[in-house]
Nucleic acid binder design. Structure first.
Lengths: 320, 320
DNA sequence: GGTCTGTCCGATCATTTGATCGATCGATGA
DNA sequence: TCATCGATCGATCAAATGATCGGACAGACC
């Protein structure tokens, strides 16, 4: 045992010289009188035994911890967690938008022609608005969700519109309401050549940025009158907690089949499993919805904030 | 400034991914959307700004033994001994600074308003520079030593300045030279309202971090022209071996009364006996000075290095 | 409006680090 | 005393890192 302690002592010394002193392993080797690989082993030992404690002294380090945990737990390609701003609740959505825009611009900046799909929602809208103007007429942007209200008016501020305006790219809108009036209407809509053409383009998209909706009294779907109060009640009855592109899902992320979901005109989520779907949502209230989306494995990337991330980590990843 | 903060944010992210997450710079680059050299620069920035804190969590048995011996022998509250580095004497002061900063941050991190006093010297300066930035505007930092040179210029990089900048706390500087030109000038200075006000704040400090100066040909006091060659000779004649805040003392730690010491404007050491004075100094050459300070009982804590510690243990504590 | 300067960015190369594998030394048992 | 097993050590190579350089962009000044 004494031998091991001696080694640990030397390991600690090597760690000091390396991490605090910034010496190279060669220098440490000559100082401690061992070979360079020997120093290597000492350092490995020091790390393994937990002698080396690294602390990043910045508020973001919290976010990084959670981001890492979420990425690993749900097999994402990335997860951006923006810091919560205690004194300015309204700016939280702005942070989200900036972070989202940064991800988005990674795709847009490319010169090769690109097809990108977009969902709807405040987050998506804010994200594209936060994007800076670049000339990319070769790109194509396509809606994954109908952008018409029930009264036939079309949302002028659809994400696709703004994005196409900013880049000069082509736009493909889905001229349909999010939720059709009846199953028959839905089938009628979906059989239209125009809509099928848009759907075809959407299938070719290599990535999609979509919002994540909660399903409760404050649901966007309900507040924006895409679904009626009775329909909301039915969804709640069936334990829906969130929705992606209008498709409701339960806590486990399983799609819910019901009278409402049968009338949703958006592209089926199954069809999009091949492409990189990126969720944008923040706020503790959205936590359950985001967690459901992650559990269902629908997303490849997530941009969220500290509040939601904390909910997800605490609720979704505590068990082993 | 906003731009700089954003950069720092990203630097923190990069540092986290690199040091905590163990990713390679390539992975970080693709994750943050910058080039690899970009990551490199971010990491350099993070280190430079002190975002990265490394702590080696192992008591080196050698250091530990001496630390214990010194703590007991001189009735200290603590004694930190950092490992020595054979080559590269310059980095030794960095080790000291890291250890000192760790002690210092124990005080600073507190939320209740705090008054701390600081001496001058390279060690103190390095220590505050190694401290990470924290927002603590409620704290007050006060000089124990005049921070003006004889030509009237004031050291912009006084420890108090840097510390106040880093925390946003209040600063109280002593607008006086360390050693006045004459006894009359000293009294004139000390009777100034302004200086008395600063002294009053200093008396309220609950802890002070001060350097320990040697008195010989390489004395800081002499090299920085705070005292003349003739004055140095006089001090050596009187067997001065060290000084605290400019107050010279002999081997036994007794203050020396002489033409020089009568002109020192710093706060009297007696007045500070109530507060926790913590000495920062390392290197075998500083051994005698440190030992004298300990023997005089002026210090409650010590941060030193292996060299000085060995000198102290061998010279000062050999008899039982 | 043009040019100039300073700053920032990314390609390239030298250095450092991490990992593998064969060799050597020591311990143990016949 | 010798053989064998095991552990540790150091040579070598691939990967990762740090540093330098040339070029491009933005802002300022003329």
């Amino acid at each position: 045992m004494d031998k091991f302690d001696l080694k640990l002592d030397q390991a600690a010394r090597a760690a000091w010289l390396s991490y605090v002193g910034g010496r190279t392993q060669d220098e440490i080797a000559s100082q401690l009188g061992v070979s360079r690989p020997g120093v290597q082993r000492l350092l490995a030992l020091a790390r393994q035994e937990g002698l080396v404690k690294v602390h990043i002294d910045h508020p973001l380090s919290n976010c990084m911890v959670m981001s890492d945990a979420i990425t690993k737990a749900f097999g994402l390609e990335f997860c951006d967690v923006v810091p919560a701003d205690a004194q300015a609740a309204d700016s939280a959505s702005h942070y989200l938008a900036v972070a989202g825009a940064e991800r988005l611009s990674r795709y847009i900046d490319r010169n090769d022609p690109l097809t990108m799909s977009l969902g709807t929602g405040r987050s998506v809208r804010a994200t594209v608005e936060a994007l800076s103007r670049v000339e990319r007429p070769q790109h194509r942007f396509v809606s994954l969700v109908g952008n018409m209200a029930r009264d036939g008016s079309s949302n002028r501020f659809d994400g696709v519109m703004v994005l196409a305006d900013k880049t000069g790219g082509d736009r493909f809108l889905l001229p349909a309401p999010v939720v059709a009036g009846s199953v028959d209407e839905k089938h009628a809509l979906l059989s239209q050549r125009l809509i099928q053409a848009v759907a075809d383009v959407a299938k070719q998209a290599e990535a999609g940025f979509i919002g994540i909706g909660r399903v409760d009294r404050h649901a966007t779907l309900f507040q924006d009158h895409f679904i009626s109060e009775a329909e909301l009640e039915e969804l709640l009855e069936l334990e829906a907690v969130g929705e992606l592109l209008g498709w409701p899902m339960n806590q486990a992320g399983e799609l819910i089949d019901c009278s409402t979901s049968r009338r949703v005109t958006s592209l089926p989520l199954d069809m999009l499993k091949g492409q990189t779907l990126i969720g944008l949502a923040g706020g503790r209230d959205k936590g359950p919805a985001i967690l459901a989306s992650l559990r269902g494995g629908w997303l490849k990337g997530l941009v969220t904030d500290e509040h939601a991330a904390r909910y997800i980590v605490e609720t979704g990843i505590d068990g082993p």
